[in-house]
Lab assay of single mutants.
Amino acid sequence: HNLTITQGKLFFHYNPKLCLSEIHKMEEVSGTKGRQERNDIALKTNGDQASCENELLKFSYIRTSFDKILLRWEPYWPPDFRDLLGFMLFYKEAPYQNVTEFDGQDACGSNSWTVVDIDPPLRSNDPKSQNHPGWLMRGLKPWTQYAIFVKTLVTFSDERRTYGAKSDIIYVQTDATNPSVPLDPISVSNSSSQIILKWKPPSDPNGNITHYLVFWERQAEDSELFELDYCLKGLKLPSRTWSPPFESEDSQKHNQSEYEDSAGECCSCPKTDSQILKELEESSFRKTFEDYLHNVVFVPRKTSSGTGAEDPRPSRKRRSLGDVGNVTVAVPTVAAFPNTSSTSVPTSPEEHRPFEKVVNKESLVISGLRHFTGYRIELQACNQDTPEERCSVAAYVSARTMPEAKADDIVGPVTHEIFENNVVHLMWQEPKEPNGLIVLYEVSYRRYGDEELHLCVSRKHFALERGCRLRGLSPGNYSVRIRATSLAGNGSWTEPTYFYVTDYLDVPSNIA
């Protein structure tokens, strides 16, 4: 807008934040220059609390790290170098490059900038070799853009010569660093050979998330399962459950009422301010606690030095998902009996873990797994792929695949051998790939016309006998059925096997 004052003059007093240069501009645009008398524009009460600059400061050096910015700028000295009290560095987070010096300023003089007072450097006698002032900004957020400017702080001049310097606002972004852990990993099994893994992005990506790394490792069953005799009275049979499938998407929606109208769909109840505040506090606490764990609990591995020492970490090797089922080394339970199943799973520490690289999504279907087997899954978020990966501390989750139908069934015939004193040795093959492992066998036998009897055969007993022995049988026709019990439950009964026990007292003698 054009402003013209045809008559009258300007009068400025007691404006401590208004620089004289701005008042002189007002004289020019209003056409009143030359009308004012000496005392109409006070030299001592206008701009006496402001830094009124008329020179431009330029930054000469900028260096960044993930949490620091090192700045240096060209030296500046007023005509009387004693008038320079120091520099004021202003900075704040700036997602967009549209910041002005006066953003967030209120009537009390406060604003949204963080201000650092910096002492002037030592003055050199040689004007050509003056030290460049600077400042190291610490405690910054990774991968965050900051708006920065600097200006001088000078003393009051009796001659009211307006001098000083100020830089333009520059924008500097800190470097990326390792992201925080992925949030809320959930693993479920939808079949006997697959596990579905879902997660949420890290709360602090500290860069642009480029991919996720998912490692999985087959877990050995508890050692007590191999040692305890679950045929003993009072000892509860062990059981394991597989990871249940995901709930429906509708039930997972946030901010939804727990109660549904019987007449149909209901609208979600909005969260109160107290609920939102509580969630923010919980989120802040979780982030602080995660940072504490990362800094205190997890110790970084030592990389190899120039002395030739090897990095103890196993090298990563990509495998196809079809090879995942046989990740671990199978060892027989008892070496003397080769027909026992290889369900003991000690994992070799030198073995390469299978892994998958996930790009542009937060889910993965891990296939080719062994049925009813526990897996430990390790999830890392990465925001750099080359020249070397920059990934987060791992988040861990466990899951067990679903049982395989008929995996616990005894394959092959049940054979028998009759000894003296009416002892019958029953023999059968253990299931080759049971659900988890076989903890015991149930032997059901009966003599024709009598009630059915049951015998429990422990895992250890089966390994020693290759089956079991029935003792003290009365003469007669017998039928026997056997079924295995694994961590997933009972298998199917075998087809009945028949044998006849004679009275050993009636056996004919070869003595003449």
Rank of each mutant, 00 (worst) to 15 (best):
Y230L: 09
L321N: 13
V331D: 13
Y230F: 12
I366T: 03
Q429R: 07
Y259D: 06
T347H: 08
P332V: 07
L232H: 12
L455A: 12
I366H: 00
E217K: 15
E290T: 03
H254W: 08
N206M: 04
E227N: 13
R481K: 15
L440W: 00
G325E: 08
Q219N: 11
E388T: 05
C468G: 02
V424Y: 13
K302V: 07
F355C: 06
V327P: 09
H425F: 14
R286V: 04
F285T: 03
T497Q: 05
P354Y: 15
S398C: 09
L470Y: 02
C382I: 01
Y500S: 09
R286Y: 04
R471M: 05
Q380F: 15
D408T: 06
W216I: 11
V334K: 13
E260W: 13
G374P: 10
E247I: 07
G472T: 09
N255Y: 05
N339R: 12
K302I: 12
T307E: 12
G368K: 07
S251Q: 13
E281D: 04
D506M: 10
R319Q: 15
S262G: 08
S251E: 08
R481M: 09
K236W: 05
Y500R: 12
E227M: 11
A399F: 06
N422K: 14
K357E: 14
S239F: 15
Y292H: 01
P354C: 14
S479L: 05
P431N: 06
G412T: 06
A399H: 08
R319F: 10
N490H: 14
K278V: 07
K278S: 05
V365I: 03
N360Q: 09
E227W: 11
E417S: 13
Y445V: 06
K278H: 01
T272K: 03
I410N: 06
T401G: 03
Q275E: 03
P300N: 03
A463V: 09
F246D: 06
I276A: 07
G412M: 13
I438F: 08
H454M: 09
A335H: 11
P244Y: 15
H425K: 12
E351T: 13
R319G: 14
C391K: 02
G489R: 07
I366E: 05
L237V: 05
K460M: 12
F372S: 04
K432Y: 10
G374E: 08
G306M: 12
E442G: 12
S348A: 15
F289M: 01
K233M: 12
S305N: 15
E495K: 09
L440T: 03
K357T: 11
V501I: 04
G374V: 08
D503V: 10
H211S: 08
R459L: 10
L321I: 14
A394C: 08
R218S: 11
V397F: 15
N206Y: 01
G368H: 09
C269S: 03
V414N: 03
R240P: 15
S284A: 15
K361F: 11
S304A: 02
R313G: 05
T373H: 13
R353T: 07
T497R: 11
S274W: 14
R481N: 05
E417H: 13
E362H: 07
W216G: 12
R353L: 13
V324W: 13
V296F: 04
R353Y: 14
R240H: 14
G207E: 02
L505Q: 10
T502G: 12
T485E: 05
I377G: 08
P431M: 01
T340M: 13
P245V: 11
S223Y: 09
G322F: 03
E388I: 12
E362I: 10
D323F: 15
Y212R: 03
P244V: 14
K233S: 14
P403H: 04
F226P: 06
S251L: 13
P245L: 10
Y441T: 04
D503M: 06
W493F: 11
L277Q: 11
S320P: 07
L232G: 12
T340R: 07
F355Y: 09
Y396V: 03
V457K: 03
L437A: 09
T386W: 12
S320H: 10
C231A: 05
A394H: 15
E258A: 09
A330M: 06
I366N: 00
A395I: 05
S257N: 07
G467R: 13
V423W: 07
L225M: 06
A263F: 05
K317P: 09
I377V: 06
R301E: 01
L455E: 02
Q429S: 14
S398V: 06
H254I: 06
C269R: 09
G325T: 13
H425S: 11
R316E: 12
L225K: 09
F462G: 03
C269D: 03
V393P: 14
Q380T: 15
D323A: 10
E265R: 11
P403V: 06
S251D: 12
A395M: 10
A484I: 11
G308F: 04
Y500N: 14
R376F: 15
T288C: 11
S444F: 10
G449C: 06
T497M: 14
T502C: 12
G368M: 09
T303I: 04
Q380E: 15
N490R: 12
K302A: 06
D408L: 03
M402W: 08
Q256L: 11
C266Q: 06
E265F: 12
P238I: 02
T485K: 09
Y259R: 14
E247G: 08
D311S: 13
S367G: 09
R316Y: 06
N206A: 08
P270G: 00
F499W: 06
L487K: 11
R240T: 13
